[in-house]
């Protein structure tokens, strides 16, 4: 990741953020209020995600379609065309009553500039297309000053950043037909000017927006492993009652760091964290997030079974 140097040295990235965020909170009150009313309970089509799910990808659509107990999948929102029918395999799952949650990766809620209305409209359209009870996005920025980073970059945990995220989340909530869940991302480093710790940073954003939390348990492991902090201490401080669902992804140790690759198996240490999380407050749903280097079907089924075993939810295979 090359972000830290370039972004911290450029105050312009954040210059616009606080201003726009604090101008007039009243403008966004309606959106936030509506969302707060619907928070926790699904306001959209079907029921909220429950149990063990898997990230739907076209590459493994045939595998996902044959999971008999599956009640919940997630689809990358940007991969679904806004007009016309959803991909065939996904449409069949919707017909079967499987909950489909669109997962955005390009909104750039953490960007200093206002979130792009066209991207929000696309996320809203996809949510309607699949009858989603909620949508999710990352607390990150993917573009700044007109430059596309091409991947998710972490925010400094400053009050300015909180204000910028909150403003953008409210803008998005005002246009979305369903509640929004926010996912913090993995980072290999902390910004030097962090004012808040991870838990406070997230809690402030959730409190201000009424959004729910999409907790990536592998990121919890990655962040604590790479910074030498205690993941259980973070779990103890996070608002676990506001978790809409949990991402469980694979990763690999490389060069002294844990990389959240999504292309490796879920390591036992992450499954242990799932158990620790569920012992504190079991989330309504957990989702296996795999994005490539696809293993044979039995291995993928075993990963789903392991998540079911760690969380105590019924097996879906």
């Amino acid at each position: 990741m090359t972000g830290p140097g370039t972004a911290t040295t450029d105050p312009g990235v954040w210059a616009a953020g606080p201003g726009t965020a604090t101008t007039d909170p009243g403008v966004w009150a309606a959106g936030a209020g509506r969302d707060a009313a619907g928070a926790g309970e699904a306001a959209g089509g079907g029921p909220g995600p429950t149990g063990v799910g898997i990230g739907w990808r076209p590459e493994i659509a045939g595998f996902v379609a044959e999971l008999p107990g599956l009640r919940f999948v997630e689809v990358v929102a940007e991969a679904v065309a806004p007009h016309g029918p959803p991909p065939a395999g996904l449409a069949e799952l919707v017909e079967r009553g499987v909950t489909v949650v669109p997962h955005g990766v390009r909104l750039s809620l953490g960007g200093a500039e206002p979130v792009d209305p066209a991207r929000v409209a696309h996320l809203a359209r996809v949510a309607e297309l699949v009858g989603a009870p909620l949508v999710s996005e990352h607390i990150a920025f993917v573009r700044a000053g007109g430059l596309e980073a091409g991947h998710l970059l972490p925010l400094p945990r400053s009050r300015e950043a909180v204000a910028a995220v909150v403003a953008n989340v409210r803008r998005a909530q005002a246009e979305l037909p369903v509640p929004l869940a926010l996912e913090p991302i993995a980072a290999l480093f902390d910004w030097p000017d962090d004012e808040l710790d991870e838990a406070d940073f997230l809690t402030e954003i959730l409190d201000a927006t009424g959004a729910t939390l999409l907790l990536d348990i592998a990121n919890v492991h990655a962040n604590s492993r790479n910074r030498g902090t205690d993941p259980l201490a973070l779990l103890d401080r996070l608002p676990l009652d506001r978790v809409a669902y949990v991402h469980v992804a694979g990763g690999a140790e490389q060069g002294g760091y844990y990389h959240d690759t999504h292309t490796d198996p879920v390591p036992p240490v992450v499954l242990d964290l799932v158990g620790a999380l569920c012992a504190r407050h079991r989330p309504p749903a957990l989702l296996l997030e795999r994005d490539g280097h696809w293993p044979p079907a039995p291995e993928l089924r075993a990963e789903l079974d392991a998540i079911a075993a760690a969380s105590g939810y019924p097996v879906v295979t």
Binding site: P58, W294, P295, A297
Partner: peptide, 22 residues
């Protein structure tokens, strides 16, 4: 073909997951 659209080249199927039969 309709039932097995996931095996169509456009889906970029994960044959490592679908196995030899797929």
């Amino acid at each position: 073909r309709r039932r097995n659209l996931h095996l169509a080249p456009a889906s970029d199927p994960a044959f490592s997951t679908y196995g030899a039969a797929g």
